[in-house]
Simulated assay, not measured.
Amino acid sequence: MPLKILVVDDSALMRKHLVSLFKDEGFEVQIARTGREALIELPLFRPDVVTLDINMPEMDGLTALSHIMTEQPTPTVMVSSLTEKGALATLEALAMGAVDYIPKPGGTISLSINSIADTIVDKVKIAARARIKGQAPRQNAAPATNPPSRTPAARPSAKPAAAPAVARPSAPPVRRPAGPVTAAPIRVAPRSYATASGPFGLVLIGVSTGGPRALEEILPGLPADLPWPVVVAQHMPAAFTASFAQRLDNLCPLKVKEATSMEELRPGTVTIARGGADLTIGRRGGRLVSIIQPESPRFTWHPSVELLVSSALEVVPPRDLVAVQLTGMGHDGADAMAALKLGGGRTIAESEETAVVFGMPAELIRRDGASIVLPSGKIAGHIRQWLRRPA
């Protein structure tokens, strides 16, 4: 059956472009001009995915999203301008349960949407397979009988409830992906090294689709006196990462900041890789530092998790590294994290029951690269446990 897409946007031009794009892909499409219309169409059309504009009259996208996630949880992709205001609203939407976002080229809709047509289609297809909290299986879901509320509901808390505890699944057999490996051969640092402030390791986190909400659950669970620095590669455009770092800083005991230049990595801090670039780990004068560099054409996703982890392996012994692979599509970081575990380091893969998209963690597990598989609600506690005692 074709995917059913509900396009919600007050711009006739934006609706025209998206409807044409989705119909060309064979999708079944319905439109709504406002958030209120969307809430009426939702139980009637029962879409697989909603694309939802943030700025609309009568009922804005955030208010409409709160209704959707409460009344009929449905994978939702926000349509956002690449501005600071648009970034803040988009991050709030992701925390509320939106799967992903579509950037408006130049901040407004134009013919240049054709330049990101493939990205839009891919995001919608991924969203259709995403795990949404509270979503019933389509074939078992009963039609809604009550009309949607006509008054805006209170927006839900940005911090999601902790995931239920699950048993660790047995390790699946190793399976290497078909085709060439994107990463260069991974060099491993010697087992002894020191920094100017003494020896310590790094916690490296890789994440993509569904990541902002996962990080908002995990990072606040790490204490201000965490003995190792944390570095995060979240696939995100350049316009969003500064706002995202500020949002996390307000939520976390740790200091959270966007990487802006070559900086020393210090315990008690979280560094968010800047969007539109890659981040590597190096040593300068005995100190571990973060280094910003242009997006490498050798890698598909950016900021690249694979490049972050492989660069860390060149300057830090694997036993002094912890790598965490969270929700996202693709395999970014799986090769380097598997090499890290093989060299004696420790890795965590987010479990399928909490990952919005299980692609990245699944690829790490398939490579026998996960030391342990955990739901998102248990990851911070396990990191604390590992760092309280010698490896």
Rank of each mutant, 00 (worst) to 15 (best):
R36L: 14
T354C: 04
K378F: 13
F299P: 03
L374K: 01
I205M: 09
T74A: 00
I348T: 07
Q246G: 14
F200N: 02
A95W: 01
P361R: 01
P190K: 10
A12N: 14
A338F: 09
W386E: 10
K257C: 10
R168G: 08
A242V: 02
G333F: 05
V230R: 07
R319T: 04
I291S: 02
E353D: 14
A161Y: 02
A162N: 14
T108I: 13
T74L: 02
S110P: 10
G268P: 03
R129K: 15
V316I: 09
V181H: 06
P318S: 00
D24H: 03
L313E: 05
S351D: 13
T83R: 10
L52C: 04
K255Q: 14
L18D: 08
E263H: 01
A171F: 08
H17R: 09
K257S: 14
I383V: 13
Q293F: 03
L6R: 06
P160M: 03
I383W: 02
S311T: 14
S261N: 07
G61Q: 03
P177S: 12
R150M: 12
P317T: 05
A38V: 12
I120D: 06
G97W: 04
R388N: 15
S311F: 13
V207E: 08
R187Y: 01
R274C: 13
S110T: 13
I365P: 04
L342Q: 15
R155C: 00
V316R: 05
E216G: 15
S192H: 09
P227C: 04
G211R: 03
P160V: 01
T327Q: 02
W386H: 00
